[in-house]
Design a protein around this nucleic acid. Structure first.
Length: 640
DNA sequence: GTAGGGTTAG
């Protein structure tokens, strides 16, 4: 009677604390010898709880006086599902030591899976032999587990043979092998198998979508996605993740919208990809909406979701919320720390970024190469040369992380920004990597700050050899010449660009107002409120001029007269976006702009003045970093 | 028992 009541209570329990109460009731009513009830309790526990609560389940398990095979298997599977195959295996061996508990084929299939995930061929082969000896060689679950195990060992041929020789395979072993082909990047073998499967279910289709996406082939992934007659949460999530990973972020967001129209509810895995797309395009409003949705639905913020929130807020210019989410996370791994350090560095909060690095080390989290990119960027953005060197040399000496070209790039940037151009050049020549365009451009950028034409020319020769068709490289060089008033050389650069037919990447700036993103390119008149915006812009220019602003016409590359140059500067995309922002947001509120290229010198000067004249905090994300313009000055201290 | 998610130089 009581047993029945407890079973029904368990059936309806959805929260961990409910289950804990029911557990107390079980003990009180002496039902704790009833393995049937206890197995139900454990299963509900796993269904309702997160991996962190596995400890509680384990304590329940440890208290069970005489657990049967079913209960052992339930516990072994729980560890397997929570990415702890080591504990699964060790429980299996404990179970085997107790002779009164029979091991069934399911126990074996679980431990075989654990061997695969642990890459333990020693035990794996022993188990395979044992399975054959006791005549379980043609058990469906065992064979499926063997396929997964051998594939994980890298013996995918053996896995394939097992599948081929199975008498009555269902879809699962096919899907397992399919996923393994995808995991090792064998998309052609996956396709062969997919084509000759007796039938395909959603798992098969979703695996193929992910398979193409993971190789960067979003086109084929989308074709498969469009061909599926039925789509579930995982199909949508896979496709959204594919776009997010390929940095086709607007497409990812569009598909997310479509998913909602199709009435498919997103889960935390979907949210991670959507947040990463938001971060990429700087869609703060959308990102915030997702965050609210997570809180409203009490979705657990795990490491990956937490990291993507931290990253999204930082990339959308809202470093306060980024820090808030980071501080609220209950544990943080190297990804979470690196995202936070990187975010702080990009916002120019170098000291805080380095504090976070120290804290990470004191919490025994081992930094990786990405962490050091954040640390070195932090040093470079605030001009810490000696500290930068110390971190750089500590990478391999103290933390066993070997520097990559990215790290040398950061150090070149650190030296260059500090004006130590000759040392930067020497480092480029002595580093154990062939210098890439990014390294040379970093040096060239430093030459622009320090007006060093000589080193600029040497950097340019190398840069143009690697990237002859990137307009930004010529723009940088031309700016250096015009600063040095070497006008004939400016003309020469212009001629070079004309001769080899440079493709110009148009500068564009976007601003989000009321959850809608408005994008502007230079001279843009396509916005519905274009007339108002242009009127606002001339008012802004007039007010700035009254405050001493003189347009930097020398940095205009086109062959215009003075008036035309001034006009071109005045209609740069960031100025249009800011004019629109001033018109359409509340007085005193922060204006956030996302630009695809770097801000030009003239715009940087103008935005500083706008922040003072119009009493607005203006946060601009450019290609490299954030600029916080407040009351006439910029957080980058004109050091960018 | 099988499928989807996070940090990366300028």
């Amino acid at each position: 009677m009581i047993g029945k009541k407890v079973m029904s209570l368990l059936q309806n329990a959805t929260k961990l604390n409910q289950i804990i109460q029911i557990h107390a009731l079980i003990i009180k009513t002496s039902l704790d010898g009833n393995n049937f009830v206890l197995a139900k309790l454990l299963r509900r526990l796993f269904a309702c709880s997160s991996a962190n609560d596995l400890l509680y389940a384990r304590s329940v398990f440890d208290e069970i006086p005489s657990p049967d095979t079913f209960i052992w298997n339930t516990m072994i599977r729980a560890y397997l599902n929570s990415q702890n195959p080591q504990e699964s295996m060790s429980l299996f061996f404990q179970m085997r030591h107790q002779e009164c508990i029979p091991i069934d084929s399911y126990s074996l299939s679980l431990v075989i899976q654990a061997c695969g995930r642990l890459k333990d061929p020693g035990n794996g082969q022993k188990l395979h032999t044992q399975v054959l000896k006791i005549g379980l060689g043609s058990d469906l679950f065992v064979e499926t587990a063997l396929i997964e195990m051998y594939a994980k060992f890298g013996d995918i041929e053996i896995a394939r043979n097992i599948l081929d020789e199975m008498a009555h395979p269902d879809l699962v072993p096919y899907n397992v092998l399919l996923a393994e082909y995808v995991r090792v990047g064998e998309i052609n073998l996956a396709h062969d198998l997919f084509d000759r499967m007796p039938e395909r279910d959603l798992v098969s289709w979703n695996t193929m979508i992910h398979g193409h996406a993971s190789l960067g082939d979003v086109g084929t992934a989308k074709k498969l996605f469009d061909r599926t007659c039925e789509r579930d949460l995982i199909s949508w999530s896979s496709m959204i993740a594919a776009y997010a990973k390929a940095r086709q972020s607007n497409e990812a967001l569009r598909l997310f919208h479509e998913m909602q129209l199709a009435n498919v509810l997103p889960d935390k895995v979907t949210m991670v990809s959507v947040l990463s797309a938001c971060g990429d395009v700087g869609a703060l409003g959308m990102g915030k909406m997702i965050h609210e949705c997570i809180e409203r639905n009490r979705i657990e913020i795990d490491l990956k979701l937490g990291t993507s929130l931290v990253d999204m807020y930082a990339k959308c210019g809202d470093i306060d919320n980024s820090l808030r989410v980071f501080n609220g996370m209950n544990n943080r791994d190297v990804f979470a720390w690196s995202a936070m350090i990187m975010g702080l560095a990009n916002h120019g909060f170098g000291e805080l970024a380095l504090d976070h690095f120290s804290k990470m080390i004191s919490e025994d989290i081992k930094p990786n190469d990405v962490t050091f990119i954040g640390v070195l960027s932090a040093c470079s953005h605030i001009g810490l040369v000696d500290e930068g060197w110390t971190y750089f040399t500590s990478m391999s000496k103290v933390y066993d992380v070997s520097p990559k070209i990215e790290h040398y790039g950061c150090v070149v940037d650190i030296l260059g920004r500090a004006g130590r151009l000759q040392e930067a050049m020497e480092l480029i020549k002595s580093m154990p990597f062939a210098p890439d365009a990014i390294v040379w451009r970093a040096l060239l950028g430093a030459c622009r700050i320090y007006k060093n034409v000589e080193i600029a020319e040497e950097a340019t020769v190398n840069l143009l050899e690697l990237e002859p068709h990137v307009d930004g490289n010529y723009v940088l060089l031309s700016n250096i010449y015009s600063q040095a008033k070497e006008w004939d050389k400016v003309v020469n650069v212009r001629r070079m660009m004309k001769n080899i037919n440079i493709q110009k990447v148009p500068g564009s700036s976007s601003i989000e107002v009321d959850n809608a993103v408005h994008e502007f390119v230079a001279g843009d008149q396509s916005h519905p409120e274009s007339k108002k915006i242009l009127r606002m812009l001339s008012e802004i220019t007039a007010r700035l001029k009254a405050n001493g602003y003189a347009p930097l016409t020398a940095s205009v590359l086109q062959d215009f007269d003075e008036k035309e140059k001034e006009n071109a500067l005045a209609h740069h995309s960031e100025k249009l976006a800011i004019a629109f922002g001033l018109l359409s947001t509340a007085p005193g509120s922060t204006i956030r702009i996302v630009k695809n290229l770097r801000v030009c010198d003239d715009c940087h000067i103008a935005i500083k003045l706008i922040s003072r004249t119009y009493k607005r905090r203006i946060i601009v994300r450019d290609r490299n970093r954030f600029h916080h313009f407040v009351n006439g000055s910029c957080s980058c201290k004109d050091y960018w």
